[in-house]
């Protein structure tokens, strides 16, 4: 496809954008074509491993993408696989099928293993013992919940455009997420925080990675008003981790 775009007179950059292939790939394909014609262009099916999300139809996948950009029904802070599965019309899908589809789309985020950090002598270990453990102990004592989460950019994959993913790991590491077309703003975060408080009806400790809340007056103000919400920023990765 990239080569055809180039034959149509598109630039590398344009062909790359339209085909969703990287510029070097387009360039290589074009070069191969000029030197050896179509046979020289290796046409391999991209990405998508066997069985990944095949259980879902195209319309269902489109619907899922749309859902992920929206707010889940209250008080859910973000979509989990069960809630998503329930929204699907037509052929019923299992939460497991949703998780497969997530994995295929590159949307699965592993949960940070806190037990492992307890005994680490690295700066991350120190951070955990000094910043996380005391807060967690306080929250647990008050019958609250400990969550982890973050925000990140997920590059485009297949027919899914690039997106900004808000993710949370709840009890037993259950993954919750929202996928937005633009970077989340203070409101998005605050909605998420508020729903966490509402669904728990107890204090919350949230270890969050990937947002620079220090620069957001809205978030700082909200945190000052909600002392039962303990936000702990995960520091940037350091080499001795």
């Amino acid at each position: 496809m990239a080569v055809r775009l180039r034959l149509d007179g598109h630039t590398v950059a344009e062909a790359s954008r339209r085909s969703g292939l990287s510029a070097p790939t387009v360039s290589a394909a074009w070069k191969a074509f000029r030197e050896g014609g179509w046979e020289a262009v290796s046409v391999k099916p991209r990405g998508r491993r066997k069985g990944s999300g095949d259980a879902l139809g195209a319309a269902q996948r489109r619907a899922l993408r749309e859902r992920l950009a929206e707010l889940p029904p209250a008080p859910l802070p973000a979509w989990n696989s069960r809630a998503l599965a329930e929204t699907l019309k037509g052929k019923p899908a299992s939460p497991r099928a949703i998780e497969h589809w997530w994995a295929a789309q590159g949307l699965t985020v592993p949960c940070r293993d806190l037990h492992d950090l307890e005994k680490r002598r690295s700066s991350a270990g120190r951070w955990f013992r000094q910043r996380v453990r005391p807060v967690r102990d306080v929250v647990n004592k008050a019958g609250g919940e400990c969550w982890q989460g973050g925000v990140r950019v997920v590059p485009a994959a297949g027919d899914r455009p690039r997106c900004y993913q808000l993710y949370l790991h709840g009890k037993r590491g259950a993954l919750h997420m929202r996928c937005l077309p633009v970077a989340p703003v203070a409101d998005d975060y605050l909605t998420l925080f508020e729903r966490l408080l509402v669904q728990a009806e107890a204090p919350i400790a949230l270890l969050f990675h990937g947002a620079w809340f220090q620069a957001s007056p809205e978030v700082q103000e909200w945190l000052a008003e909600h002392l039962e919400f303990h936000l702990i920023n995960v520091p940037p990765a350091t080499p001795d981790d």
Partner: peptide
């Protein structure tokens, strides 16, 4: 570079 190449193609 790709951007140079693109400019030249144009």
């Amino acid at each position: 570079f790709e951007d140079q190449l693109a400019a030249i193609e144009a």
